[in-house]
């Protein structure tokens, strides 16, 4: 489904963010990409839809090589990949409906999109998706009126209305509270299962990754150092991914995100009132 072949990204500053990444993601698989900050997680998923241009190597989506496409071919390929962002990246001053429909921009011409004359099927699909993610009565709200969890649901709907084959998810829960984080991750995984979508999910919250992903890939300094099941993610492996020093710090009671502690106290009662968000 998605195949990365020796992908290298070197920034102009000389930093090598990715150092020869080989990765294959079959259809319908939810893959969590973990690793410390600066390991290249964001760069990796942005190399797939070429928001970041890889320096060398090839990316294939199905049979198509993404890396060799011209600009109009790239736009067409991007329609097949939905992306979900850490800070939601909704267009704040547009309504929920406009944000969801912006997922169809790759299919609709400029003037139609400018005058918001989207095809009727698209609008119907937007209503369906908004109701699927639990935002039926929010259609006409402006994006900046929503809470974090609600915004991320709009982000998910925007990605899904593209009718993608692959979801690229960049730290979907980093700006959310623990309870909402779980709800959002659960929603993303359910939707992937419903539509047999493949997903690459960047996530720095290891317990969350273990809970929801079928497969975990650990990235460290632009190199894949672990690729396996959540069960195989031992302390030793975590040390290899996050480094000894970080790991020791979290062992002495610091709340580093890498500590696998399923009874995270933050998700206990004090956030119960946020359930609806």
């Amino acid at each position: 489904m998605l195949r990365l072949d020796q992908v290298v990204k070197e920034y102009k500053t000389g930093d090598r963010a990715l150092n020869g990444i080989d990765l294959q993601v079959p259809q319908g698989q939810v893959l969590a990409l973990i690793g410390p900050s600066g390991a290249g997680k964001s760069t990796l998923i942005r190399c797939v839809n070429r928001l970041v241009e890889p320096t060398s190597g090839a990316v294939y989506l199905g049979d198509q090589e993404i890396t060799s496409l011209g600009s109009s071919g790239l736009r067409r390929a991007r329609r097949r990949m939905g992306m979900i962002f850490q800070e939601y990246a909704l267009v704040e001053r547009l309504t929920v409906m406009e944000n969801v429909l912006s997922g169809r921009l790759g299919y609709v011409g400029f003037w139609r999109s400018y005058f918001r004359r989207f095809p009727r099927e698209d609008v119907a699909e937007a209503f369906r998706l908004l109701s699927r993610v639990g935002l039926d009565n929010m259609v006409d709200k402006r994006a900046d009126e929503l809470s974090g969890g609600q915004r991320q649901r709009v982000g998910i709907a925007r990605a899904l209305i593209q009718n993608p084959e692959l979801l690229l998810v960049d730290e979907p829960t980093a700006s959310l509270d623990p309870k909402t984080s779980r709800q959002i991750m659960r929603l993303i995984c359910e939707l992937c299962r419903e539509r047999t979508l493949a997903a690459v999910v960047n996530i720095h919250d290891v317990p969350l990754a273990r809970m929801f992903a079928e497969r975990i890939v650990g990235l460290r300094q632009g190199v894949i150092v672990y690729d396996g099941t959540p069960e195989g993610l031992s302390n030793q492996v975590l040390t290899e991914i996050y480094g000894v020093e970080d790991w020791d710090a979290s062992d002495t009671g610091e709340t580093a995100p890498s500590k696998p502690d399923p009874t995270r106290p933050k998700s206990k009662p004090d956030v119960e009132h946020l359930v609806g968000m």
Partner: peptide
Amino acid sequence: IDPDQVEAITATGANGPQRVAYGIVPQILP
């Protein structure tokens, strides 16, 4: 402007004018 919003519009496969109309114009309208 917030570049993330433009990035998100770009990621949907929008073309140049659409990126301006959806990603930039709403942000600078006020």
